[in-house]
Design a protein around this nucleic acid. Structure first.
Lengths: 242, 242
DNA sequence: ACCTGAACACCGTTCAAGT
DNA sequence: ACCTGAACACCGTTCAAGT
């Protein structure tokens, strides 16, 4: 066989198939041999397109980040920063919940994923435009990510799908009971997410008032504040990811 | 050799050695063969004490949970619920940061770890005692965990230690520069955690006022509220972990 | 350039055999 | 009861060989 006249593989096809496999059977189901078999090639073929298996998973994770709605952060959008942040968090979480098995990859990785960086940049830019000092804008991007990925991760961990194998049928003889448990869990996750998001945003509104109120008093230190902000910006762009 | 007169292994010794190995070289360094070698036995010996490798890692994770300070939730403690929640979150995060490599295990696992359950129960109990309705108390335990584990996970992901191998010396010829980057990242993590925690607690104080204010009006629905609460309690105890 | 089979150095786990 | 070596069915990745 050797080399076909038309390439059998492409990065996109590999990522799409890997993503489907992750969604269907979880992270552990993705081995290079298994993935290759599903693509109709032999294992080592993948290494013509990606340097490592991890790079493939990173690409799958980035594809999820790319599906997060960012329209609320665009210049023309009329939503105030609180509403924008809220809507984004909801969209962000929804994207993660649609692909729960890849969340661990998304939550860990250093910020080399282009879509992840795009998310961080959008949040940062919108917050600065809304009047937040750059350092605080960086913090907001990070802390929102903590909360959303944290909730998506816990959610996944406690979801029924993943626990199915762990539930000994001897302890849970009724399938219905397990399903009920799962629904209850989702209720808790939903309630906790909504409660936490509201609290977070309410709290930020309070801090915003303080920061803006103090701005006129601290006029004399404007350049120092700006210097701080630039540093924070460089960091937020280079290090933050979503 | 076969069986020695005195057992070579014990669960405690396995967990301690595994924990040290995780801290030293990360999660991937823990293979049953490697761990066994470090304990002076052969790989399969471990299976006399644990059913799977994952059980060992869960035990390592639980040992970290056991180090989280819970004294602020004790009946006699004078701290108000907001302060208790704050102090707990700080202690919780500190424990995770001391063992960053195990955080992914801690963040994912279903709530079968005794120390994790103890944490969830302590938070829940204290919040109910402080006057929160049981359903809200469950949410608070969950959302705080989202935030703390999320921050510990991101922190770890962006930490210098783990990235060291990824930093090509060709791109970062000065070791000092990489160190600077790491320090900057920790600054962001620290600021984001503090900002987010404050916002979260401020927001919860607002909600507490609403909930308490509304309580007198909704007196007639007291039993319904209690019914809701019991359900949430059952769920919070069975499903929540930390 | 892109795919292959063979090979290397690993895995987690099972199991019969030993004492 | 608790440890062993051998074995099974896998891994991720490298590499020379093919076209």
């Amino acid at each position: 066989m050797a080399r076909p006249r038309k390439p059998l593989l492409s990065r996109d096809r590999i990522v799409a198939t890997a993503g489907a496999l992750v969604d269907r059977e979880g992270l552990d189901a993705v081995s290079t041999r298994r993935l290759a078999a599903e693509l109709g090639v032999s294992g080592p073929s993948l290494y013509n397109h990606f340097r490592t298996k991890d790079e493939i998973l990173e690409a799958v994770a980035d594809a999820v980040s790319a599906r997060v709605d960012l329209s609320m952060f665009e210049e023309g959008d009329a939503r105030d920063w609180r509403t924008a942040l809220h809507d984004w968090a909801v969209s962000y979480r929804a994207a993660l919940r649609e692909h729960p098995h890849i969340v661990p990859v998304l939550a860990r990785g250093p910020g080399r994923r282009p879509a992840g960086l795009r998310v961080a940049d959008a949040v940062f830019g919108a917050m600065v435009r809304a009047g937040w000092p750059p350092a605080q804008a960086t913090y907001i991007g990070a802390l929102m990510r903590y909360f959303v990925t944290g909730s998506a991760l816990s959610s996944f961990a406690r979801g029924f799908v993943d626990d199915e194998a762990a539930y000994d049928p001897a302890d849970y003889p009724h399938l219905g009971q397990a399903h009920l448990l799962a629904e209850r869990r989702e209720q808790v996750d939903e309630g906790a997410f909504e409660t936490g998001l509201r609290a977070l945003l309410d709290g930020l509104v309070l801090q915003y008032a303080t920061v803006r109120g103090g701005r006129t008093e601290a006029r004399g230190e404007g350049s120092a504040v700006r210097g701080d902000g630039s540093e924070a910006r460089a960091d937020g762009s280079a290090g933050a990811e979503a």
